[in-house]
Simulated assay, not measured.
Amino acid sequence: MSGNFYSVRCSDCENEQVVFGKAATEVSCAVCGTTLARPTGGKAEIEHEVLETVESR
């Protein structure tokens, strides 16, 4: 499995969370529950600010 992990900042509560770039399920913020990423069948649609690529595979 190849893909990248991204550090994403929630625009609602400023929480930073690591998200897989090809997420197969909806990813919610661990603090406030806002959706951070939605699956699209390939790369996930990241809906908030991407801070950096944490790990490339």
Rank of each mutant, 00 (worst) to 15 (best):
R38M: 09
S11N: 12
Q17W: 08
S7R: 12
T35H: 00
E16R: 05
A23W: 01
T40V: 04
S2G: 11
F20H: 14
P39G: 07
C32M: 03
E14S: 15
E16D: 06
G33L: 07
C10A: 05
I46A: 00
T34V: 14
C32T: 01
K43S: 11
E26V: 14
E47V: 12
M1R: 10
F20Q: 09
V27D: 04
D12E: 15
V8Q: 00
Y6T: 00
T35D: 03
E14W: 13
S2F: 11
P39L: 07
T25E: 12
L36F: 10
G42L: 03
G3W: 01
V50H: 07
P39F: 05
E26S: 13
A37V: 03
G3H: 02
D12I: 14
Y6I: 01
A30E: 12
V54W: 01
V54G: 00
V8D: 00
S2K: 09
T35Y: 02
F5C: 04
Y6K: 02
S56D: 08
T53V: 15
S11G: 08
G41V: 09
D12K: 12
R9V: 14
E47T: 14
Y6P: 06
C13K: 11
C32F: 05
T35W: 01
V19G: 02
C10W: 02
I46E: 02
G21A: 04
T25L: 11
E55G: 01
L36W: 09
V18F: 11
A24S: 15
V19C: 04
C13Q: 11
E55V: 03
G41C: 04
H48L: 04
R38S: 12
Y6R: 01
A23M: 05
G33I: 05
E26W: 02
E26I: 11
G3A: 01
H48T: 04
C32I: 03
V31M: 09
Y6A: 01
S7H: 04
E14Q: 14
S2M: 07
E26K: 15
G33Q: 13
A44S: 14
R57S: 11
A37E: 06
N15D: 04
L51H: 00
K43N: 15
T25Y: 10
S28Q: 13
G33N: 09
E52H: 06
V54F: 03
N4G: 03
L36C: 08
N15G: 02
